[in-house]
Write a protein that binds this DNA or RNA. Structure first.
Lengths: 196, 196, 196, 196
DNA sequence: AATGAATGAGTGTTCATTCAT
DNA sequence: CATGAATGAACACTCATTCAT
């Protein structure tokens, strides 16, 4: 049969991407086979190549797309907020909520950087640095203004991002706490941690 | 059990373990080949099987050994300290220093849990939970005593551990800050974050 | 039969055939992909099947067509010439000129016989033998008439054909020598070689 | 079973090379699969990679080895012979005998140059040019000395080589003529063809 | 204790071919 | 007529693993 009735190319591409994210989170990029992926989508392994020229490309596509999206979303979330205190609180809210909603992509993006081909890795790292730079800037501004304590904006930023990101290692949608409660715990920890 | 019973470990065994840690950190467990490993040690691939029955066993051995060691070391570091505040500060010191000193093992232990065979994974997760439980207990005690703020000892513990562990993602021995400075930044963040 | 019965060949068919010859000469039959071919023509790979039922058919079609054409052209070139000496000279002229003009087809026909399916290979070999037989006959006639030296008309014919055909391995349209000069060199070699 | 009893690595390498030559001659390099090759040798396909890192390397190895051998053998065959006439006769003898004895390698070397990776192709072409240059030099010397007719030593050399090489397209060990007879026919054709 | 030759299952990838649209 | 989505079989190649030596 040349084509499964009713299938449409663009749909297939989305299905592949979604299935790939799930399988890579579950088994890791290296351990996921294209046959597993194809079976999950209901196509043949070779058909993946109509949409992604290589397994590497698939990973790169997902990760770069994710990083671009999250960076843009962060900037939008911070837009119009001036005071460092409020900006930091907004960042906490945004970051955790995003990492809860897109848990899989975020998990991938932290775990599989090593598996990216050189060029894509550089691109992803640049986007991550841009993301981190936003937080560093907030902390530096707050320290300069005297509202934040702390000796080192950069290390503090890494620490805060590390804390908030770790949520996606254990969060389960049907867990004990609701997202808002999780956010509150972390935001309180962060804000109390940095305030002078 | 982390090692073959009673074996103190021959030289070759230690060399294999050390080389494996380095290569797995660099390339990931799945991507590291036994030929790479053997070449790094200066032996043939087949000879690895004298010491570790399978690639999986090698990973399990390293990870379980690491988890046992770090758990024991934590308990020793906290021994004799009573007050929650002091215990938490001691935990921060210990955790970061350990993660800086054994950066590679820690990185492995967070990244390659998925690659472990079922039994070993359960064992590692149990050890990790025991480790986390120590921190949860400190926070719960402090909250009960009224010295720590915070609504949820468990989530707070995960957050703090996540923050402190993230150091091993970026720490470089010849970096801008010395270990003591890094520890200070994190300890301050944590302590300020939890104190009532 | 070289072509689908009665078809004069549409434009697209001619384009496919021409592009296929070029690509097969460049990469070899096995190494040429239908996607390359389709791209060269400006259509989709699947569309090639409107004109040639299979890749093998395309090769067979080209090669049989070529062999039929060259055999007919040889017979026409020799028509009306009686004396073995003159017939052999005419053959040299014809063969080299044809191999220079249709260098690609000739190159294909010598290189890709192995790639033909059994039936087509037999057909091509039969046509080639018919071609060779013309030369054998000329030599045999000349030897019988005492104008040609030589012990074995068949081997001599193969040797002469091999010599003349080798031109298409190195001939380049803008090379140092013009076709007429190349022809002269070879004809002189052959005629001097066989004359008693 | 880890090893077929009695098998020795060096033997296997020779067996692979020999089987590869046969299969490549029969089906062409592209059409020969490593499974065919492995089966012919009595090993698994993957085992070929102990001896040749890639299919391409196998071809390159065979072709370069052949070209080096034949070039050295030619020079040895011509050593000590001074007069162009005798050198050319010696070349004819050598070339045909060698092409009869090593028919398969020679056939490969003429047919599969396209399949070589770039570097190996350049190497093989350089060796071929060195071989051809020997013949060009003989003809040029003979023309300069006035013993050979002919206008163009290079084209004449190509023609003669083309003639003699074509033997390996049809020669069969149990054919009608013995090697010495085949050699005689060709040598007579060539010598008569070039003598003034 | 170590080697090195070999296995065999599996990998990512290619490609001629088919066919509903 | 042509497309483009899909197939499925095959390919070159890798690698953890085994075991006679």
């Amino acid at each position: 049969m040349a084509r499964t009735k009713g299938s449409v190319g663009t749909d297939t591409e989305r299905l592949i991407r979604a299935a790939a994210i799930g399988l890579m989170v579950e088994h890791g990029y290296e351990a996921m086979t294209l046959r597993q992926l194809a079976e999950a989508v209901g196509i043949q392994a070779g058909s993946v190549y109509r949409y992604f020229g290589a397994k590497e490309k698939l990973l790169a596509d997902i990760m770069i797309g994710h990083m671009e999206t999250v960076l843009a979303a962060l900037r939008e979330a911070l837009a119009g907020i001036e005071a460092p205190v409020e900006r930091l609180a907004a960042f906490c809210d945004f970051h955790i909520r995003y990492h809860i909603e897109k848990q899989a992509e975020v998990f991938l993006a932290t775990m599989e950087i090593r598996s990216l081909p050189e060029t894509a890795r550089a691109e992803v790292l640049a986007l991550r640095q841009a993301y981190e730079a936003e937080v560093v800037a907030i902390l530096a501004a707050g320290m300069a203004a005297g509202v934040f304590a702390g000796r080192d904006a950069r290390v503090s930023a890494y620490a805060i991002i590390g804390m908030l990101t770790s949520v996606c290692q254990w969060y389960r949608p049907n867990g004990r706490l609701k997202p808002d409660e999780i956010i509150a715990v972390h935001r309180d920890l962060v804000m109390a941690g940095v305030m002078r």
